[in-house]
């Protein structure tokens, strides 16, 4: 290792010590401390940034959630669990959680199912054409949600949008996709699925390529059909990847915000008032900072629990395989 220098580096140590402004009588022990301190200094900028912009705000948010703070007024009174009590008594919380969960489940199931089917179709080795197609399918993942939401808003437009032109051609009545309470949420999910399937496909493909070929060869000798190979080899061996995707997609979908802000503003009739959007309006249009922070904490606890579940389960899997 770096600091375990043997005797031949002693002159070097001395030189470095002089450079560092340490008297030449410094013992080796002290010198080690200085070297360690110098190593540590390189981690300091990152630690300061994390402390100032992450850990302090995190603790501060916890504190704010126990106050009646309203950002427009300077008074900040400690009110105990009042914000939490009021939130849990509020019907809107359950509506918002229901909307968020509904959105998240639809998003996770559709993105992963379609992503897996795409992976099966597009996992072709050594084909330039397939590589290009995979690239195109993957690209929407990197297109800004704001712009994706704009394009879909135009496609969903009640009067002139492409989707209603098609429904009309097929002889149906036009639908107000984004202002109808029963279609607004699925319409939002569609944007997220469109952006997410390529990412899921890429990860599933990388998982599939990690499965040793011998399994398939053995199955072929046993005369296993294509479907049973998928069912008994691919699917079980993909499960770590699937778990990873389920949890990460779940967590990011729970935080849906941009598409709602662009496409529905939480409406119609709160049908798309997902939790982060509600937090945002509570904090920046109603200025109920304390209440909003309590809601943030509820969200954070949910995300924390999910992350711990993923961590525990993936540890277990590694253990089994090892």
């Amino acid at each position: 290792m770096m600091m375990n220098s043997n005797s031949q580096s002693a002159p070097l140590l001395k030189e470095a010590a002089v450079k560092a402004g340490v008297s030449s009588t410094t013992t080796r022990k002290h010198f080690g401390l200085i070297e360690k301190a110098k190593d540590f200094m390189f981690a300091v900028p990152a630690l300061i940034f994390l402390a100032v912009f992450l850990y302090y705000p995190l603790l501060n948010s916890v504190y704010i959630s126990f106050t009646n703070w309203n950002m427009t007024k300077p008074v900040k009174k400690f009110v105990g669990a009042d914000n939490y009590v009021k939130l849990f008594k509020n019907e809107d919380l359950y509506q918002s959680l229901k909307v968020t969960l509904h959105y998240t489940l639809l998003d996770v199931v559709l993105t992963l199912t379609i992503g897996l089917l795409l992976a099966l179709l597009f996992n072709v080795f050594r084909s330039k054409m397939y590589a290009v197609m995979r690239g195109i399918i993957f690209m929407p993942h990197y297109i800004s949600m704001v712009i994706a939401a704009m394009v879909f808003t135009w496609i969903y437009n009640g009067q002139y949008g492409l989707l209603n032109r098609v429904t009309e051609l097929m002889g149906f009545e036009p639908i107000q996709w984004l202002t109808n309470p029963s279609t607004a949420l699925p319409a939002l999910v569609a944007v997220s699925v469109w952006k997410g399937v390529g990412f899921a496909m890429m990860l599933f493909i990388s998982g599939m390529r990690g499965i040793p070929n011998e399994y398939y060869e053995a199955a072929a000798i046993d005369g296993a059909s294509g479907f049973s190979r998928f069912r008994y080899i691919t699917l079980p061996l993909l499960s770590p990847m699937t778990l990873f995707l389920v949890i990460t997609t779940f967590i990011s979908s729970m935080q849906v915000f941009q598409s709602i802000d662009i496409m529905t503003n939480g409406g119609p009739l709160q049908a798309t008032n997902a939790i982060v959007y509600w937090i945002y309006t509570m904090a920046f249009t109603e200025f109920k900072t304390g209440r909003a922070s309590a809601l943030v904490m509820i969200l954070f606890v949910i995300i924390l629990v999910l992350t711990i579940i993923q961590w525990v389960v993936s540890r277990k899997q590694v253990h089994y395989e090892g």
Binding site: L58, I251, V296
Partner: peptide, 19 residues
């Protein structure tokens, strides 16, 4: 502590950072 930062969503920090 660095890795733990990965699980803290933006919403947790935005009010204090805004202030």
């Amino acid at each position: 502590l660095v890795l733990a930062a990965l699980i803290v969503p933006d919403q947790v920090t935005f009010v204090p950072v805004y202030v």
